[in-house]
Design a protein around this nucleic acid. Structure first.
Lengths: 361, 361
DNA sequence: CGCAGCTCAGAGAGCGCTTTCCCGCCGGCG
DNA sequence: CGCCGGCGGGAAAGCGCTCTCTGAGCTGCG
């Protein structure tokens, strides 16, 4: 403390970023403010009572020096990264780009990111992005996370039988899934009430006066698909329809087209169809057009997801929208809470979908 | 070194993640291997010659302990974060979610992420995501970056007159833009040859035999839009068409619909149109359908971007595809190189677009 | 045989921060 | 008036790592 404050020597906030000039540290701020490092730390972190006058002096010194805490140093001692990760997990090998392109090009991904950021930014937490495919990549990820890469994970698991949820739980890493886990696991998640969404669709078709309603389901082992199919059947049953014709696809446009064609061949009197996602519904539209059926006059179609495909379809699709941004935000909130208090119990939050009425039904 | 290796005391790799149990450190590995911390560090980082035997022993100890380097500690001393940031910058205030949803829902974003990851993952570098709107957010970002949040930035600037490129350069932060800066700045970037793309579109329309070709341009001050419009006019001029009817939109579907309607009203004899992006082209399709024009028989339409909207459109759009994933990957490579050697000169890489022929032209 | 010159491992000094421990001061109470 | 408790600030011990410096042991040449 022998040295006097030497403000003049320090580089001013924004200017002269000669890049490698040493950035101001706590020490510098302390010297300028004429206090100890510890005090500056306490003021900056707003911890414990500090003399109001000192408080002012310290903040002034922070401004004067343009001080920004060094994240690495802080993390090292607090054992907090100040970061959460969005992990996209698929069981397929996609170390080659094709997949990358395919999935990330789906707006689905962006909506999740948007929802997460809306919670993360106000909290001052960073968002890291990870993509894992092969099992070794999964193991590496868990290692990186345990070691403090991120404080927690929002997990987007695209494939049933994904081992990652289990691995994360086992490793004691805070994690929340978007979409329920395919295999039951003690992990928090947010999801959309898929059954309710299917019921909404059924309600719409029935309200239009449809008598012969068919179903195009999705892949058998995908939870979202299972729930939508189950919801459809239940809703139909409740309205007195014990059985409905159905076909299944794998959530792609082509598979939807094929399924619809088969459905139509077997049941020419169809006048309404619920398709488990928009992409397949778009394919269905093509098949219906080919078959000379007018939509919605001859056959009404309801999709699911309200993806961009729904708006783009001709005619635009009546579909079920999940509030993905809201769900991602909720997942992030759950995650932050769990990071704060790891003893919090595993929770699930189910959001209600809404029916978006366009022209196809 | 008095103590013998005590492997038994250390937790095994995957199991028993009682979370708060101290993770193995360099020290632990050193003890197990019977060498010094320094040696382990050298082996792990593959630096300098180390006795091959020791090498083996050390790696064995690493496996045995399940050691993973602590990133924070490493960053603290190396002054490297091992992270690059994808920064999405818009001049509008979007601290409210609507924008978030709108932009991130665009597949554009995901394709960039995919391209970046394809380079980043092999390099062992993390990807952080940042979104900045207001000027204070921009300043905060620069502070965070200078302080070492990330080693460099891939910048997606959505708005002309964005101050961020300048700020980054000034602060001496390694940065590469995807898409050329609206205002000239000493910053590296990758871009697509928009003019060439427009020429491709013109070529296609002319080859189909179109005689009366119109243009739906984008926002005036957006570089990509300027280049596409300029490219269109040049290509037309080169083919002898001194002037073409045109209208402008703002890159949204609705604006495309409106622009097309105006164009059609003023020039009913139109038989071809180049629309500066797919979203607007989709709108144009609606307007054409309304006006009773068949596409492509009466009017041929070419879009730009090859977004998911192009595939989804009815009929599917013939469009100009920029290799966005490739561009993002290239930007990332440029960035990593620049981080490695900051004296590298500012570079630009222009990629050629390709025409994707579908049904609309 | 001696010494310069090399290679390679270990000791130890930090990187910038948080946090515990301690100490000095003040007010209140016996 | 003396003692105790509480409050606010400083000193210093690390967090886990990298990297320089030191020194031991070897080779090769004079």
């Amino acid at each position: 403390m022998a040295e006097p404050p030497q403000l003049g020597n320090l580089s001013r906030p924004g200017e002269r970023g000669s890049a490698r000039s040493r950035l101001p540290t706590l020490e510098d701020v302390a010297r300028v403010a004429g206090v100890s490092r510890a005090t500056v730390s306490r003021v900056v972190n707003g911890v414990r009572n500090v003399d109001p006058d000192l408080h002012t002096v310290v903040w002034a010194a922070v401004d004067a020096t343009g001080y920004v805490p060094n994240r690495a140093a802080r993390s090292l001692v607090t054992r907090r990264a100040g970061t959460v990760a969005l992990v996209v997990s698929d069981s397929e090998e996609h170390d080659d780009d094709p997949f990358l392109g395919r999935f990330f090009a789906d707006p689905f991904f962006g909506r999740v990111v948007g929802g997460m950021l809306s919670v993360l930014r106000p909290a001052g937490v960073q968002l890291g992005l990870h993509l894992v495919g092969s099992p070794p990549a999964r193991a590496r990820l868990v290692g990186d996370l345990r070691q403090g890469q991120a404080d927690g994970v929002v997990l987007l698991s695209l494939h049933p039988d994904d081992a990652l949820p289990g691995l994360l739980v086992e490793a004691g890493i805070a994690a929340v899934m978007v979409g329920r886990p395919a295999r039951p696991a003690p992990i928090s998640y947010v999801d959309v009430a898929n059954e309710a969404g299917a019921a909404l669709a059924v309600g719409r078709l029935l309200a239009r006066g449809c008598q012969h309603i068919g179903l195009v389901g999705g892949p058998e082992h995908v939870p979202a698909s299972q729930d939508r199919v189950a919801g459809f059947r239940q809703a139909m049953a409740r309205r007195g329809y014990a059985w409905s014709p159905s076909e299944s696809g794998n959530f792609t446009r082509e598979s939807g087209e094929t399924a619809m064609r088969r459905l139509l061949a077997a049941h020419p009197d169809l006048d309404g169809v619920f398709v488990a996602n928009d992409l397949m519904a778009q394919g269905a539209l093509v098949a219906l057009h080919e078959a000379g059926r007018r939509v919605p006059d001859d056959v009404a179609v309801v999709g699911f997801d309200d993806s961009s495909a729904a708006q783009a379809a001709q005619p635009p699709l009546t579909t079920v929208r999940h509030p993905l941004e809201v769900m991602a935000a909720e997942a992030t909130r759950l995650l932050l809470a769990r990071i704060e208090d790891p003893r919090l119990r595993v929770a699930s939050v189910i959001h209600d979908p809404v029916l978006v009425v366009r022209r196809s039904a």
